[in-house]
Design a protein around this nucleic acid. Structure first.
Lengths: 147, 147
DNA sequence: CTACGACTTAGAGCTAACTATAAGTCAAGA
DNA sequence: TCTTGACTTATAGTTAGCTCTAAGTCGTAG
């Protein structure tokens, strides 16, 4: 049996406010209502929510997701648009991952740096350390960051 | 010789407005001024900007970055706090990468799905396809997503 | 010497994405 | 029957992070 908005929200780890907001923005045209107007979320609808979540975390704004939903409603004539959109998002996410990898490298270096600093009680020690005295892994990391 | 705010902004791929905003929020206490009050960005300061950018892309809000800058100004007594902050951020970024990997998986599946749909002119074809008829790689992807 | 462009400040305005409030409806349990 | 709690709508408020405007200053090229 279907879920209420509260159950669906809990399942998705968001609030009912957010789901109503999405509905208002046209992201949930597939949701049916009970006789008294209450939204009913089926398992099939939960898949839509997962897709919305996916596009959101792929950096797509609400309006972009709305476009996709509209294209979907228009049927097979919009297949190419939809395919292109997914390829574009895939590329965006690949870039996001690369950027985060660079961020992670910098943080990894800083963690090493501050481990040295805490161990010696002063930042002066890692600050003065020459590349050739650093662990291989850290030296390579730092070199990449300095480029 | 040092850069003006316009040059520094261009180097970082942001606007002078943003840099002034960061300064106003206390993120740039290290920036010196010329006799007439113009901010002067040295190469050393650019490193700070890169660190700020790093923390920002690690999901840290402006206020959190400000805390770090304040701790730095307080000297070696805050070494542990700073180290802990970097470890915490590192963990956050690792989670972000994992989440994005999941997002990427879903998008990869959708790209395959829509490639099939476009190739056949209708979404009905990939929709009806059974797991055993999918390419190995896609089947595994889909199975992971359905869990 | 003056015009130009980039800088300065304070403060207002903007956008996205929620998040909450108020007033009301409805269904199920004591 | 009545209370309780989750739902409904419309609309207002919040937050983060910029982004811009206005009014004015400064330094250099013509």
């Amino acid at each position: 049996m279907p879920y209420t908005i509260g159950h669906a929200a809990k399942k998705m780890g968001i609030t009912p406010y957010t789901l109503r907001y999405y509905d208002k923005e046209g992201l949930l045209p597939f949701i049916e209502r009970s006789a008294s107007g209450v939204r009913t979320f089926r398992d099939e609808d939960m898949e839509w929510l997962k897709l919305i979540e996916c596009l959101k975390s792929a950096g797509m704004p609400i309006k972009g997701i709305k476009s996709f939903i509209d294209w979907y409603a228009q049927g097979d004539s919009t297949l190419r648009k939809r395919r292109d959109m997914f390829y574009e998002r895939k590329a965006v996410v690949q870039e996001q991952i690369q950027a985060l990898q660079k961020t992670l490298d910098r943080l990894t270096y800083k963690c090493w740096y501050y481990d040295r600093a805490v161990a010696s009680g002063t930042v002066a020690v890692p600050k003065a350390m020459k590349p050739e005295d650093m662990p291989e892994e850290i030296r390579q990391l730092k070199q990449r960051l300095d480029e």
